[in-house]
Each structure stands twice: as C-alpha cells, then as structure tokens.
C-alpha cells in the first residue's frame, strides 16, 4: 500500500523524470505506429486487391510476422545499426530513432495483416459496384481504405497496443539510457529490478491510463463517425 500511495503521489505531483519518460515513450510508439500505418495499410490493400503467384504464402507469412518476438526484432535491428552492421554509418544505435525503427518493424505486419483482411472483405462487397462505375484502380484503393477507416482504426489500435507494451526490442536498440532512450516499459523493468517500486507502479498506472485513453478516444471518434457515415 505505501508503494501504491507513493506511486499515485508521483503521478499526481507531475514528477518531471516520470513525465519525460512518458513523453518519450509516446513519441516513439506513435511515430512507429504512424510509419507502420504508412507501410502496412497500402501493403495490406495491395495484397487484398491483387492476385499473384504465391499470394497465399504471402498472407501466411504476413500473419506469421504478427507474432514475431520483439527481442528477435531488437537483435536484428541492433545488428543492422551496430557500428560493424550495414547501417552502422547512420549512427542510430541507442537513439530514439533506432527504437522507432524496431517498433515500426514490429507493428507494420500487424497493421498490414489486419488491413488486408478488412480491405479484402470490403472489396468482395464493393467489387461489382466499383467495376460497374468504371472506377480506376487507384480510386478503388482509395475508396476501400476510406470506407474501411473505422475498422482500420482498430488495426492501428492493435499496433499501438503492441508498440506501447513492448520492452524487448527497445531495450536492445535503445539501451535504456536515462533521459535519452528510457521509455515506460524499459523503466518499469529497470525500476522493478532495482526495487524502486513506487516509480515502477507509477509508470504502470500512467501506461495503462494512456492506453485506455487512446482506446476510449478512438471508440468515441468511431461511434461519432459511424453515426454520420453509417
């Protein structure tokens, strides 16, 4: 109980250390989700709307990539960004950018796989109408993405949930450096191992509150938009 009380005190007092960690974690996760969406939604649409040799294999691969262990991605990104790696010259290892890259790789397959399923289902419904209206391919893709936007929000939320809760990849490529690459999840792991439970619990409360708020906001936006567009 004393731990819980001091954790709440930490949150309510606006502790600068705690909030710098929260801010960095949000910047990293939201940036990763944005980049993953820019990659994943068009990729999902492409697979949904085209037929090519090996399409079934590509879908199975994409679905498999959803379950990639974060530590494996962290290791691969670490190897790529390390001084002797192919991208070592960029000097990104142990920076927030490296964490964004790792989380983007982690989240993009989730968004792509869920987008593919959503867009393919809608395409089956829309195919005759859009073909009869002579809508060109870019227009069809745009229409499907726009009309599937409420369902795609769920895909983005799934991606955000994965990114926000992830610890294995960011701790490897970020290094958990205080004031530089320390995020909520890496800090929780560290503070728990150090025995500083108030900060760990405080961060846990903030993390859960943020995920809850983001989901609630998305739900409200979705309901409001559905009332307008059906």
């Amino acid at each position: 109980m004393p731990d819980n009380a001091s954790a709440l005190q930490l949150v309510l007092s606006g502790d600068p250390a705690l909030f710098s960690i929260v801010l960095l974690a949000m910047i990293v996760s939201l940036s990763a989700v944005l980049l993953a969406a820019l990659i994943g939604v068009p990729l999902g649409a492409l697979i949904a709307l085209t037929s090519f040799r090996g399409r079934d294999g590509a879908i199975v691969l994409l679905n498999t990539l959803m379950g990639l262990p974060p530590v494996v991605i962290g290791l691969l990104v670490y190897l790529a960004l390390s001084r002797s790696g192919p991208l070592g010259a960029w000097g990104l290892l142990f920076t927030p950018q490296a964490m964004v890259i790792a989380q983007t790789i982690l989240v993009a397959p989730i968004i792509a796989a869920l987008s593919r399923q959503t867009i393919e289902d809608l395409w089956l419904e829309y195919r005759d109408e859009l073909t009869a209206m002579n809508v060109p391919w870019p227009g069809r893709v745009g229409t499907l993405i726009w009309d599937a936007r409420f369902s795609l929000i769920t895909a983005l939320l799934a991606g955000f949930g994965r990114a926000a809760a992830e610890v294995g990849a960011v701790i490897i490529v970020g290094g958990n450096i205080e004031g530089h690459t320390r995020t909520m999840t890496t800090a929780i792991a560290l503070e728990t191992s150090k025995g500083d439970l108030p900060l760990a619990i405080g961060l846990g409360i903030v993390l859960m509150a943020i995920v809850l708020m983001v989901n609630a906001l998305a739900w409200v936006v979705r309901r409001a938009a559905e009332r307008v567009a059906g």
Binding site: E125, D128, E129, T131, D147, V228, G230
Partner: peptide
C-alpha cells in the same frame, strides 16, 4: 468500358457515406 452504361444490382451496395455523398 462502361462509361455510357449503368446498372442497379438486385441488392445494391451502399457506400459508407451519406445519401448525397
């Protein structure tokens, strides 16, 4: 291409927009 032709299907699909949209 069906530029000067139009069809109404038995069960038409409504796009997720308003009537006017």
């Amino acid at each position: 291409p069906p530029v000067r032709r139009a069809i109404v299907f038995q069960r038409p699909t409504m796009l997720r927009r308003t009537t006017s949209a």
